[in-house]
Design a protein around this nucleic acid. Structure first.
Lengths: 207, 207
DNA sequence: TGATAAAGAGATCAAGTGGTGAACGTCTTG
DNA sequence: CAAGACGTTCACCACTTGATCTCTTTATCA
């Protein structure tokens, strides 16, 4: 099942990312701080909601202390269907696509990520050529709003241009670095950048 | 089954796309806003229509409230199983591999070729790096003994070493040209070279 | 011409959402 | 033992959300 609301998904994303980065679950206070929320109760409610949806498990042990959360494992099935969302480039935001096509993708391409979180983008242009991602390739993207330094992300700048770039942070600023020696990195204030997903795999048709 | 009207299809498309991108269902208001419609009731009617057609499922949980929508799973035979034959490099001929794994591959990757003729190889080394075929990639190969000039082929030299290279002919001789500026082409008499297949597509896991 | 269906507007209602702050019990550490 | 830090629960608030009802407009078809 999926998170029901935007907020719930954000919280889940944060926990997932925190888990991957630190190897343990964040505390309620840490989550609250991250979202600029002053009450732990709010977080507790989100966690409860996520638990009801089966996306999280608590170590609710009576008597002893209680621990936070454990993200659910995904059942394996060889293939799944994902949406193929037109082209990405310096240009159109992803929203502005009318015809969505569904394509089949082998699960092993994106590891343990839940397939509901994956979508596909047709890559346009050679901005990631040094990563050997070419024009016409189909990139598999995990839908996330958080990213770690150095990951290849789908980023929306000023809610207008969607691009596939490597992400780095410098204080309040974000650097979107194309993997192409001929192109310049873009460096803007973090508030202008919205992360839409993370690069997880590649398919190249009919070469 | 198909949506009955244009509008219903638009709504369904929007939901599918939203689901793929955001990882959760849109609310009625969000859908309404997207279509410039001021009433949630209108959307509710479309959702009801789509549900009757079996294109959507509601989370109508007893006792608790009701939730949004889940797009139906569509199994398709747009997929086929092919053999994944270990690694190719300067090394073993392909025949001499005992451990054969089967993997699922979307058919659109290799166009009109019959799937029985396709097998997969794990690429080892960077000899085709200039074609943006990297170490660890999975190459889809059409099993053939003939090739045209300039095609990327799996070639067996002296019945011993299998390699992935571009093929060119010069009279009685055959040139196997790696796509890597640092490597030298191999040029041998045609009788020493056996073509085992032609490169048709690529998959890159878990990047 | 009249019947029917699709699309939409607007209002109402119960239940869930997102948030606050304050308590409480438990564990860890000084 | 006391001081924190932790997860949990409670009451309370404003708001959103899905469902449902009634009404209007428009188009299609017999």
């Amino acid at each position: 099942m999926l998170p029901r609301t935007q907020r719930q998904k954000e919280v889940l994303d944060y926990i997932t990312r925190f888990l991957a980065k630190h190897g343990h679950e964040p505390s309620y206070s840490q989550i609250a701080r991250n979202f600029g929320v002053s009450s732990k109760a709010t977080i507790a409610k989100h966690i409860t909601a996520l638990e009801k949806r089966g996306l999280i498990k608590r170590d609710h042990q009576p008597g002893r202390f209680t621990l936070a959360v454990k993200v659910e494992e995904v059942p394996a099935d060889a293939v799944c269907e994902v949406a193929l969302l037109g082209r990405i480039a310096a240009g159109v935001p992803i929203d502005a696509i009318e015809d969505i096509e569904m394509i089949c993708v082998p699960r092993f391409l994106f590891g343990r990520v839940r397939p509901e979180r994956i979508y596909a983008l047709r890559v346009k242009g050679d901005s990631m050529i040094d990563e050997h991602i070419c024009d016409g390739d189909i990139a598999l993207i995990e839908s996330r709003t958080e990213a770690r330094d150095g990951e290849i992300v789908v980023a929306l700048i000023d809610r207008a241009r969607a691009t596939l770039k490597r992400l780095f942070r410098f204080g309040d600023e974000v650097e979107l670095r194309p993997s192409n020696a001929q192109l310049e990195p873009i460096r803007v204030h973090a508030s202008r950048v919205e992360i839409q997903g993370i690069f997880r795999g590649l398919m190249r048709p009919n070469a």
